[in-house]
Design a protein around this nucleic acid. Sequence first.
RNA 1: GGAGAGGUGGCCGAGUGGUUGAAGGCGCUCGCCUCGAAAGCGAGUUUACCUGCAAGGGUAACCAGGGUUCGAAUCCCUGCCUCUCCGCCA
Length: 421
Amino acid sequence: MLDMKFVRENADAVRRGAELKKTPADVNAVLALDEERRSLVTRVEELKQQRNSLSEQVGKLMKARENADSLKQQVRELGDEIKGLDERLAGIEPQLREMLLGIPNIPHESVPPGESEEDNKVLREWGTKPGFDFKPLPHWEIGEKLGIINFEQGAKISGSGFIVYAGGGARLQRMLINFMLDMHTSQHGYQEVLPPYVVNRDTMTGTGQLPKFEDQAYCVKPDDLFLIPTAEVPVTNLRREEILGDQELPLYYVAYTPCFRREAGAAGRENRGITRIHQFDKVEMVKMVRPEDSYKELETLLQQAEDVLQALNLHYRVVEICTADLGFSNAKQYDLEVWAPGMDRYLEVSSCSNFTDYQARRAGIRFRRDAKAKPEFVHTLNGSGLALPRTMIAVLESYQRADGQVTIPDVLRPMFGRDIL
RNA sequence: GGAGAGGUGGCCGAGUGGUUGAAGGCGCUCGCCUCGAAAGCGAGUUUACCUGCAAGGGUAACCAGGGUUCGAAUCCCUGCCUCUCCGCCA
């Protein structure tokens, strides 16, 4: 969320930002409620000051064994008035917070303007589309033929949108996860964490999944816990409500987790195969950095995600997301889209975002530059490094052979132990 | 799951109704001292919000939420968490 003071002092910039994002946001209503809150606070604090000093006098009188009844009565009446005002405040404050949460982060000035995702800008391409002397199959056909992806079993035991990897498929998936984690920890300086896959309501709220997207999450009802939709949720919340030391920054976390998404409303789209499933694996990078470094850190984050694709020798392109397609909390975002020759299209495998202080304010993640300095909010970033199903799609489809077999990418061979699936 | 104990500032640790935002110690910051350092001495050391041009003033917070009271870190209730013992279990 944005800082109330910032909204008050930069109302126009906030309005413009929401417009650019095509997100309706009633800034005036927020300003009005803020005004009301402040006048209420001022009044109630005055009354409390009176109560405190009168109450102190009561104490003195009673100690001196003098009669304090009329004073007591006076304080009691003050107390009633305070109670009323406090209750009104207690009603307004959550409402104000909620309205503030409805205002999106402001896009960075470098973000290209746009009307829809059509206006996203392809910045560059890496590698070339692989050529085939046969018609490349889509991954679901490869998967079924080789018996490494089983859709029926997934549907049987869990439901549509769940899959079972078997044999070389399961093994390849595990190797890919290993490979990514190893790269990010040993070459990119990340600390690996293995968080819980189920989190509480506060955690889901801290990163913004709740209350707005409750219908997208799987809920463990008796315990009011939620299956994580991405590792971003537990990992970003690791430091929730903390004040970090300057020497701790920048913090780089990488986590492998499964991700669970109900995808309510997404059913029936052109999502054959495993492009969009309810449970998938992902390696996620999360950064907490000093504000002045965040845009530089976004570039390295992007590069680190690209490194994975390059090591796997998969053709991809880098897309700069335009203002209209930018996520609600994002100030700037790049997507990596990998080429899937069997599907004849690009698939988003990574999304690298700079949230500036928007997410950190909501989650209360701060740092102190030195012992005397005021705490400041960190900037948070995250990026997939990478999403497994779509990486798997790209590998299967790009490395397929005329005989139906799939070659194992060079970098994975030592780990995998053989050169075909 | 059963029984018990406990949750106070960066840390340790006092505090059971009235200038206690909180003793004392440690740590940390600044200053003095020193060629420099240590020791020693002195000062300072939570956060959020409101108000003010500023200096400053004020309110709130001792796990969280309610309650009692003129007044609560201190009393009562509920919840959460931690620890110990028992049970169960990958």
